[in-house]
């Protein structure tokens, strides 16, 4: 396997089993584990950030375990290699943070665009090379930096990182920009890629915030498309259009591959990858064109009536002298 650029080997922070041996899916999330940590974050277009030295946005990603995005536990960072790169493919050096804070990585995001961060591990188990890729794709955007369309379009396409054996890439929509958000009820698609090449036959599973899940097998183009489920139902007074929900995508596939790792032979390889993201209620859930047009037309009609009435009042009655001819 080629060397990962900007790789940061992490020593086990706690006495945990190796990452590949963990049975539950692992994934990165920017959702803090406690209210205390939430207070330290700011909402930005790419999710929650902290403010670093000189005003630079800092992303903190917690490692979580489990396939239920709403209730997955927080883990200290296990052994593995951390790779991250910025929007211009520049290597980024993430720093692990302590288990007391929940465990994970943090890195500065000085540039506008998408940052990719990975936690990778390989291990031979029962004659199978287990390769695990935990990926986070995070956006850094501040409106204060402007909205140059050419710049934005240049930084929108998804990237794959050299040396990462298997990864999930979220496909962009044609009109997507830094302000776009995934919404319930709308389609969302992912590509399963092996060293940048599409993987056919990979099993891709999307799990919503409420635990709803769907599995799709990728075709020759490595693509798996889902329609994000609408699973936020509440009494109307409690409805929150900014309610963030997390989704989790898991992908895995096997292929025959003979080799040896650390003196241990294997006859096949099993790859698994995770990628998490967020989605929000779709605008049609709480917006109405019909009522909008109704209010506009009502106001226009009343205005026309008002102008007509005003002009009628302003019109002076014709003055006529009348004579009583009999008098």
């Amino acid at each position: 396997m080629p060397e990962f650029r900007g790789a940061l080997p992490l020593a086990p922070l706690l006495l945990l089993p190796a990452l590949a041996a963990a049975t539950e899916p692992l994934w990165f999330s920017d959702l803090p584990p406690t209210a205390e940590w939430t207070e330290k974050t700011l909402r930005a277009h790419g999710g929650l950030v902290e403010r670093g030295r000189g005003g630079v946005s800092v992303k903190r990603l917690w490692l979580r375990a489990g396939d239920d995005p709403a209730h997955a536990s927080y883990l200290p960072m296990p052994a593995g290699e951390v790779v991250a790169e910025g929007p211009e493919r520049e290597p980024v050096a993430p720093k692990p943070f302590s288990a007391e804070a929940g465990g994970g990585i943090r890195f500065e995001m000085p540039e506008e665009g998408f940052y990719n961060a990975y936690l990778l591990s390989r291990e031979v188990r029962d004659g199978t090379l287990e390769t695990r890729v935990v990926k986070a794709e995070v956006l850094m955007h501040s409106c204060a930096n402007g909205h140059d369309r050419r710049f934005t379009e240049g930084r929108m396409p998804p990237r794959v990182t050299a040396g990462v054996p298997f990864e999930l890439v979220r496909e962009r929509k044609p009109d997507e920009d830094f302000h776009s958000r995934a919404a319930s009820g709308e389609p969302i698609a992912f590509l399963a890629l092996n060293q940048g090449e599409p993987v056919a036959g990979a099993e891709v599973r999307l799990i919503s915030n409420t635990g709803w899940g769907k599995t799709v097998i990728t075709g020759p183009d490595g693509r798996a498309e889902f329609r994000m489920v609408r699973d936020y139902f509440t009494d109307w007074p409690e409805f929150d259009k900014r309610r963030r929900q997390d989704y989790l995508v898991l992908a895995e596939y096997r292929r025959p591959l003979e080799g040896e790792l650390d003196g241990r032979p294997y006859a096949q390889a099993h790859y698994s990858a995770t990628l998490a993201g967020t989605y929000y209620p779709a605008e049609p859930e709480y917006q109405s064109y019909l009522y909008g047009l109704g209010v506009m037309l009502l106001a226009a009609t009343l205005s026309v009536g008002g102008v007509y009435h005003y002009r009628l009042r302003q019109r002076r009655p014709e003055r006529r002298e009348t004579f009583d001819e009999k008098a």
């Binding site: 109307w236 929150d240 259009k241 709480y286 109405s288 909008g292 209010v295 506009m296 009502l298 106001a299």
Partner: peptide, 24 residues
């Protein structure tokens, strides 16, 4: 942008005001 936002009372009032001003 030609919509009413029913998500909160404030959003509804403000977008209604916006659409009414558009008519005027």
């Amino acid at each position: 942008q030609w919509t009413l936002d029913f998500s909160t009372v404030t959003a509804l009032v403000m977008t209604s005001l916006g659409m009414a001003i558009l008519g005027i």
